[in-house]
Design a binder for these strands. Structure first.
Lengths: 251, 251
DNA sequence: CGACACATTGAGAGCTGTCAAGTACCGTGG
DNA sequence: CCACGGTACTTGACAGCTCTCAATGTGTCG
């Protein structure tokens, strides 16, 4: 599984900018349209300047590039500013599995806190940009501002719940149910971000989806085709349009 | 799946002791043999008194009882002091899946931070006791003591990694590999707690194991039998003895 | 327009689930 | 102490879902 493709794992340089200047590489996070997602929810007005004081630069990651890779030393958290990334975990025998899909506003890098080294890799599914949040500065701020502390804790707990939900998907649901659950999840998250609930671009390949859902790319493809025949969705490659949302919900 | 049994979900009373006095119900955590596991790793000597000032009582949970259940309001974290518990998540259609096994020293309750309500249930696999760590007090202490903050963050990150490893098990491994991975995991954790790597009491039923590993209890049972025939393990019901550790590792 | 990655579809095999029967174990009550 | 009932466990037979292998179709980018 997942061994046929050899994704171009060109790790983005750590210090300094990406050579081929990606869009808005070093823009300030404070000028970011999705700033509210990067962290500050729940902060009082006079806490905001403190947050902006966090040297919160942005960084571009081009499609297929890794933001960080398993084994990299950890020192900063990220928040997706635009685009989307997948998180990937590797087994010792080389098999690897997609463990998460991160959309705008989602946090990234928490896996590094445990050991000071990253356990996953994070790879861009499209040209993306992320806010950089130095962990030590964030910790310092959390000690001063209880709202910030709350926010970070909730963020981590959120991830925990998201992952255990995915464990449930992997452990208890049939192929059909898994694909449906995935589509509904992406739909919801897309909607929450102000985009359409009904129509979105998956960005992931069928192989990525399969890896995330614990099945082969062929089964994913077959399932989507069947959904289309049943009038549940309209799928043109990675472009998905949900036609019968309730139908998907009831499997 | 998992519908045949109707586990006695007698939620333990929230205020006050359990009616049938369980062992050491209100003992102080500071007198606990596994105190070092409850939190303080990495704290400097003069931080310890602060930690003990956290009103850290213990509470008993009898086998089959729930420490907390999905939907319960969240206000305290726990750390397993003795015994073991399983965490269980429920799907809307009633199917439920074991999402984790918590042994002595493991944290419990983090799932409640996100929404202030618990998302999982935690049920004792044997008569157990847990340390009670009021979340608000813990937060307060994390703002004062950076070592404590570090510890909490790492704890949460650990859980995240543990869960994504389990996602990998569920998504990429065959039945044999899953069972082997589970046995090795329990063996390791048992060893880390000063017990035998080779011999342990699983406590979980085959059904729980199956639920955790995304397979049926019959397949679990068959797999264990096959392992036994191959001379990898010796299984007498819940009592497992690992004979060929390397054999298990190489599947 | 060709090269390449990605996606679709088919046929068959294999693993795991389902259903069913029988066995072992354990706590309870006589 | 033993008998009993119930839960947990084992094992078998068979079906069905998903994987594997393979061929073909489609889109994209240089």
């Amino acid at each position: 599984m997942l061994t046929s493709t050899d994704v171009t794992h060109t790790t983005v340089r750590r210090a300094g900018r990406t050579p081929t200047a990606s869009p808005r590489t070093t823009a300030r996070c404070s000028s970011c349209a999705m700033r509210h997602l990067c962290m500050p929810q729940g902060l009082s007005p006079d806490d905001l300047p403190k947050l902006e004081a966090l040297i919160c630069n942005a960084r571009g990651v081009r499609r297929g590039e890794s933001l960080y890779r398993a084994g990299d030393p950890f020192d900063t958290l990220y928040a997706v500013r635009s685009g989307s990334l997948k998180t990937v975990m590797a087994h010792r025998d080389g098999r690897e599995q997609v463990t998460g899909l991160r959309l705008a506003g989602d946090p990234l890098g928490i896996d590094g806190i445990s050991t000071d080294f990253h356990t996953w890799s994070a790879t861009a599914l499209e040209d993306s940009s992320v806010c950089i949040i130095p962990y030590s500065a964030l910790k310092h701020m959390c000690r001063e501002t209880s709202a910030m502390q709350d926010r970070l804790h909730r963020l981590m707990s959120d991830q925990l719940i998201r992952e255990s939900s995915q464990m449930m998907v992997l452990g208890s649901l049939s192929a059909d149910e898994r694909v449906a659950a995935f589509l509904l999840d992406v739909s919801t998250r897309n909607g929450q971000r102000g985009y359409s609930y009904a129509e979105f671009n998956l960005r992931m390949t069928r192989e990525d989806m399969g890896s995330y859902l614990g099945m082969t790319l062929e089964t994913v493809s077959r399932t989507l085709s069947r959904f289309q025949k049943r009038g549940l969705i309209d799928a043109q490659g990675k472009l998905i349009r949900i036609i019968d949302l309730e139908g998907l919900r009831h499997l």
